[in-house]
Nucleic acid binder design. Structure first.
Lengths: 203, 203
DNA sequence: TGAAAAGGCTAATGCTCAGTAGCCTTGATA
DNA sequence: TATCAAGGCTACTGAGCATTAGCCTTTTCA
């Protein structure tokens, strides 16, 4: 009943070369955008020609979809892990926001691409990503509603507060750099505090 | 010395049709992205064929650049207007953030495109937009530094606080809708308050 | 009223791109 | 050692795109 029996990785395993291709595609999609990235460039990044990619992946579109869907699944997983077994609603929110921000530092390219390239997905894939995103947003909003219901939080608008928290994470993905002068822990801690003051936590 | 003698509109005037084309292009760039928008579609949106656009604009690229550069200039203008003649640093920050957020509701498409399509600009235009953006970021950061220097604000990191405030505005541009259930004033007021608690304002 | 400017249009140009066809090399295995 | 699959490669296909060329109609105004 601990939840650890749920598989964390649910998508098909990739060969090493398949993983290299995905990593290269992710980097290129983040740098220049999905539409502006050519299969020739993705191939070059792993030392092969564009058409040879098709021995490993089925299409450029599938590459994008896999990157985004996997990222959303990981985001759900880290959220679940962060709040599991924590009772106090303020602690739950702080831990959820910390996990949110940490995800956006550790997977900033995935988050960046995920936020900018939804439009490049075909209808089926877009619906799948949007569904996962909505589900995640409901989790965050639910935490705030919980705190408000318990009179622990005081906000002008639950919706606005949840948007603010979610947007801060996305912002991090846009400017965070591993070699920058703000450490991951520093950002995570500070934003966790931000979150609590933002919902006007009592106590 | 009031600053009102500085022209607010500095770019070449557009004919009505030129303006219609720009508005249509803005809407399409926001909806499906610059690369995915065709000149045929922009033309269709104003009732002409794609090639006829070239009687009014010099290129698709210039259309994007003009949209983004104008938006950055307006953002600077509304900021200057918001803080002009205000002495108290907390008031200045609150008013600056209010102006920032209001800009992102009133010009959400421009802001949205401006944040997502920098990569689609050619080098010259990109440099111009990035310069304006940096300049604006310095203004916001400067306000926070001012408050910290005067011991009115208390933040763990000036940089982090300014990123957070800037990111909240960008977030607004992504989800705000004129016909949504959160009013512009409501969002502006709430985020103005967020800003002050976020910098740990004293008094 | 007549010339010319403005602003449409279709057709064409030249380029880029995702994906396919079909071939060849290599290395594992039977 | 013969076979065969894996995974490269080049050449090609078919489509889409921004932009230009050149033509025609309408409007403006001297």
């Amino acid at each position: 009943m601990s939840g650890s029996d749920r598989a964390v990785v649910t998508r098909p395993q990739l060969t090493p070369r398949g993983r290299a291709i995905r990593d290269a595609a992710l980097k290129l999609f983040a740098e220049r955008g999905y539409e502006a990235t050519t299969t020739t460039e993705i191939g070059a990044a792993v030392g092969i020609r564009g058409p040879s990619l098709y021995k490993h992946v089925s299409s450029k579109q599938d590459l994008l979809a896999a990157i985004m869907l996997d990222a959303m699944d990981v985001l759900h997983d880290v959220h679940a892990l962060a709040v599991a077994g924590v009772d106090d609603v303020a602690d739950r929110l702080r831990r959820a926001v910390e996990a949110h921000v940490r995800f956006h530092t550790r997977h900033r390219l995935e988050a960046f691409v995920g936020n900018r390239e939804i439009r490049s997905l075909d209808e089926v894939n877009r619906a799948a990503v949007v569904a996962r995103r909505s589900s995640y947003e409901r989790l965050i909003r639910g935490l705030i509603e919980e705190g408000v219901a318990a009179s622990r939080f005081h906000v002008a608008s639950v919706k606005l507060a949840s948007y603010a928290l979610l947007d801060l994470g996305m912002g991090v993905a846009a400017w965070y750099r591993e070699d920058g002068d703000l450490s991951e822990d520093e950002i995570v801690y500070t934003y966790g505090r931000f979150a609590l003051t933002l919902v006007g936590v009592a106590g």
